[in-house]
Simulated scan of single mutants.
Amino acid sequence: MAGYLTTHVLDTAHGCPAEGLKITLFELSGENRRKLAEMTTNSDGRTNSPILPQGAFKTGIYELVFFAGAYLRATGQAVEDPLFLDQVPIRFGVSDDQAHYHVPLLLSPFGYSTYRGS
């Protein structure tokens, strides 16, 4: 089976999925950055489809940019200006184009974490 990329966002401050958070995916090559997709999370904090589906998925370096600041403002969690977290970039490598890569974001106004999930 061909590989694909998924993501989701959990709002750890509120203990719920982060609905309505914009995410952009870029492919990186040297100093070049090419936009591949832009999606918004649904009520489950996930995108409605893989952010990089089978057929488009290949080895390389990628960057997910999570627009955390807009989400934090919309949910009333933005308490300072400028925000401590605004855009959260996560740069990662794909070495197996036949695997499912899942890159979630656990988010609060003052911190985040990520991991390679399944």
Score class of each variant (00 low, 15 high):
G76Y: 07
T47S: 08
P82R: 15
E80A: 13
S95Q: 08
M39N: 02
F84M: 15
L83G: 02
I90P: 00
P53Y: 00
S49G: 04
L36N: 01
R73S: 09
D96N: 15
F92I: 05
K58S: 13
M39V: 15
P82L: 14
D96Y: 12
L36S: 03
L36W: 00
F67K: 08
R46Q: 09
A37S: 15
P50H: 09
F67P: 07
A56H: 01
T47A: 06
N42K: 03
D44T: 06
A68W: 02
I51Y: 06
E63R: 13
T59G: 12
A74N: 15
G76P: 04
D96T: 01
D86M: 01
L64G: 02
F84W: 13
V88H: 02
N42T: 14
G55A: 10
E80N: 14
D81F: 15
R91E: 11
L64F: 00
E80T: 14
Q87L: 12
I90L: 07
P89A: 09
L72S: 06
S49C: 11
K35S: 02
S43Q: 08
F84H: 14
G45L: 01
N48E: 12
R73V: 11
Y71P: 02
P89K: 00
M39T: 13
V94W: 08
G69K: 02
F57E: 01
P82A: 15
I51S: 09
L64R: 03
P89Q: 09
F66K: 04
D81A: 14
N42S: 10
T47H: 04
K58M: 11
Y71N: 04
E80C: 14
V65F: 03
P82E: 12
P50I: 11
E63V: 06
D86Y: 12
L64A: 00
T40H: 04
P50C: 09
K35Y: 00
A78F: 06
A78N: 10
D97K: 03
T59C: 12
A56N: 12
E63P: 04
F66T: 04
S95V: 11
R73Y: 14
A74K: 13
I61H: 00
A37I: 10
P82H: 15
D44W: 13
F66C: 05
E38Y: 06
L72H: 07
Y62Q: 07
A78H: 08
D44R: 10
P82S: 14
T41F: 02
A78Q: 08
P53D: 11
P82M: 15
F84T: 14
A78P: 01
P50Q: 06
Q87I: 12
S43P: 03
L83T: 07
D97Q: 02
S95L: 03
A37E: 07
G69Y: 11
S43D: 13
A70K: 06
A70E: 13
L85K: 01
E38K: 09
P53L: 04
N48P: 03
L36Q: 01
P89W: 03
L83V: 10
G60A: 08
